[in-house]
Write a protein that binds this DNA or RNA. Structure first.
Lengths: 313, 313
DNA sequence: CACTTCCATGAAGGCTCCCTACATAGTTAA
DNA sequence: TTAACTATGTAGGGAGCCTTCATGGAAGTG
């Protein structure tokens, strides 16, 4: 039983096809196919079977793929202990993030990393909530979000940590009749024209909650994905929209109002595969992200406290 | 970090010198030396340092050697799960045993293995109690014994299981004045001539306990290791001796008497390295050994119950 | 102190095995 | 049917592991 084979089966389970694994590991499908054959010959069991255009793991293949998680985690743990004995964490951490959370967190992270030996390579992608988990195959750390729970869908078996709980506010133009309010509820905003999102996209559930709470179907004048686009439409007075509080830059043209009466918070979560999370540099970055997140929550909340008393839970 | 390197460091830790590891793995010391160099280059840390004639692990080497235990155990666990899914356990199990316990256990084990797919390769050696643990590097399973506790000295980090608790009896010639007794105490036997063991050998502690309990120094007419030799000297009427109850064949010439008043029991223990213990065939053999042990304990105890009531604890 | 023995290490070369390149065959969708 | 995707098989190059042989240091022995 060779670790190389275990790793291949894990990657095959995670990426689905041999071709995808080959591309990710800079090898040819042929090499991997031969490796599978070798593993099957050595173990005397079928590990994969043809399925549709590609392959599917047999029961034995699944056992080995799952076992690979344990083995590779154990290896990573040893590496972590070695690093710990050697001094400060170092190395390169590959981070993939959803853009808005990255905008809120990365500046603070980069500041904190300045006097460490850790380098960060940053990638960003805008995906459906359930698709972020799969990106942990490529990146050491994936910054995802979840609107319903504290751990996004599909993150089973991954290490996850909430680094920030971010309120989703209602954005209105600064000359709007509601602009001077401290907060708004569903009844206040249900008759406004809305800059909404395409079906299935993250904030959609909040739009639906407003409809459910007020009993009024929203007038969606636009369905866009990009938050900067939402901002510009709202600023121009075409309607109101939903925007995450910390990721939205202060702007003269619009005002963010806390939304009460419906759940309007998203959890920003750092996801990592178990083995990658064992790396000392990776766990250090997660700690720093949580620190940045706490700073953001602190910095904004007291600002409102000065004008109006807040309910501290 | 390659598993091959971890394994090498573990073996080096367990066997002491590169030459010993080389011999055990059918390679040359040169190959291993080069492998160590490669590992040090890849990790950027010194793993070994010259010490006396040989090598010594550095702190980093120790971390990796200990980590190897975890990693290789995880690998073995996967193998075990695979075997479990495949049906009956199979393969070859290498057993090393102390001779007397082997004599008691192996016949029953071989009987039970007859209709399985498991093969056993048997080796035997007579060692000091603390030296059995080291043999787990060579054999999958080591049958050792412990007179003081349930786990022999030096067995830290190994899987151990008591398969049999064996009383150590006083052997007297069949025409001896005590031969008709049901049991004897220190005061009964302290004035007899004794066939004893060399200093440091297993049963020595029991001889000393008899001296301590009776206050009489024993008259040791001989100091021998081999139990068959003890038997023949006792049968010939030269003195009395200590013999393990189950490992001593029924013989017309001598009688075994339970020894009361001092601790006179040894634990027969199956030892295995954590990774080897994960193999399905190995754990199956351990189960069978425990079964054989239970049978031995059962078969002998009720026999005495019929003549004299026993204290069941 | 010389001799022996047991360590580890280094250079040179063979050999195994892994990967790439290229060709082939099966499956799905347009 | 064609195109695009999958996996698989064969042939060949190359990296890396191991062996052989030689060297040097450390400990024990006469």
């Amino acid at each position: 039983m060779e670790v190389r084979h275990l790793e291949l089966l894990r990657d095959l389970r995670d990426r689905g096809t041999l071709a995808a694994v080959a591309e990710a590991s800079f090898r040819t499908p042929s090499a991997l196919s031969q490796q599978l054959k070798t593993a099957e010959r050595e173990l005397g069991v079928a590990l994969v079977e043809p399925y549709s255009r590609g392959l599917r793991l047999t029961w034995a293949g699944q056992i080995l793929a799952d076992g690979a998680d344990d083995v590779l985690t154990a290896v990573a743990r040893v590496q972590g202990r070695l690093d710990a004995g050697r001094g400060a964490p170092a190395g390169t951490v590959k981070i993939g993030t959803l853009p808005s959370a990255g905008a809120a967190l990365m500046p603070g992270l980069f500041t904190r990393l300045a006097d460490t030996l850790i380098d960060v390579v940053l990638d960003d992608f805008d995906l459906a909530e359930a698709d972020y988990a799969a990106r942990t195959a490529d990146a050491d750390l994936v910054i995802a979000h979840s609107l319903s729970a504290d751990v996004p869908a599909g993150a089973h078996g991954l290490v996850s940590r909430v680094v920030l709980r971010e309120p989703i506010d209602v954005a209105v133009p600064s000359h709007h009749r509601l602009a001077s309010r401290d907060a708004v509820g569903p009844a206040d905003v249900c008759h406004e024209p809305w800059v909404a999102v395409p079906p299935g996209y993250p904030f959609g559930t909040i739009h639906e909650s407003i409809e459910a709470a007020s009993g009024v179907p929203l007038n969606r004048i636009a369905r866009v994905r990009d938050n900067r686009l939402v901002e510009s439409l709202v600023e121009a007075g075409h309607g109101v929209g939903l925007l995450p509080r910390f990721s939205t830059p202060a702007s003269a043209g619009l005002v963010l109002l806390p939304l009460t009466g419906v759940r309007a918070t998203r959890s920003i979560v750092a996801l990592a595969r178990r083995d990658r999370a064992q790396r000392r540099a990776v766990s250090a970055v997660v700690d720093l992200l949580a620190e940045v997140g706490a700073t953001l929550e602190e910095r904004v909340r007291p600002a409102r406290t000065s004008t109006a008393p807040t309910r501290t839970s």
